[in-house]
Amino acid sequence: MTTSAIELTGDGRHGTGAPVVSFGNVNKSYGSVHAVRELDFQLFPGETVALLGPNGAGKSSTLDLLLGLRNADSGTVEVFGTSPQQAIVRGKVGAMLQSGGLMEDVTVREIVRLACDLHPRAYPAEQVMETAGITEIADRMVNKLSGGQEQRVRFALATAGPNELIVLDEPTTGMDVTVRQAFWGAMREQAQAGRTVLFATHYLEEADAIADRVIVLHRGRVLADGSAAEIKAKAGARRIVFDLEGHIDERTLRGLPCLAAVEVSGRTVRIQSHDADATVHALYGLGLYPRNLEVAGLGLEQAFIAITDAATAEEGGDR
């Protein structure tokens, strides 16, 4: 197996019912920057999906396209079988944007009431505030809130009515650990009520713990699409670290079997492998004598780095 095996692009999984969101070969550029390339995926009812990727991977662009805040250069974006704008006007989509500002010089209660007034099938404002845990700060001015409180107000705006799709862009930024846990608790309730949840994040542990499906984006493409466990397994599940004496020939090392990635820094060699036993065996077979040899499993974080690094290496000339 070579690095190309890492570019797993899963098709729609858990395919039950008509897709909630459907991207068909979507492209979007800003000037010379190709933000999203041939994006093609579907989300199905009841899924909790994490959109994972490094900064600049195209997460925010993808969400903007999904919400109709930007238009695709080519390809189709459908939400509940209609245009994103129509789905929003019908009150089917709630969104919490990373950059979503709040109205200033108003109280929390006033802004929540506004959101309820604008939603075609809104819940009572008091109930929305209760769910979001902002009843105690209802009379505070919006511009005097802490980062975490602001996020909860945004969450209230995204859940002003029974939205069938909830889109969250890095929702827990600025929240402390307790608030973060409470937030995901509230989010799980939404998912258990049968709603589809899509969230962009760079917290890998969040994707690992909360999502039942992870879509890895890199340079505007879908690199991997599957459960967190599948991604870990396919990314090169083992990590091998050792030191070498004398001249290190990186080319020889790259010829080892089952490699996902090789990194040499000074005397130390770090390898990611799909089959650590085979790799180590071949290492000795080359006549090399590795010292301080360690073999360990990969977390989703390393798996993620392995996948994106491999893709970057392959795209080398594309930079």
Partner: peptide
């Protein structure tokens, strides 16, 4: 200013 702060984006996600 409201556009920069993103409030207008948030408003555009409503049926207004």
């Amino acid at each position: 200013k409201e556009r920069e702060k993103g409030w207008v984006r948030q408003l555009r996600l409503t049926s207004l």
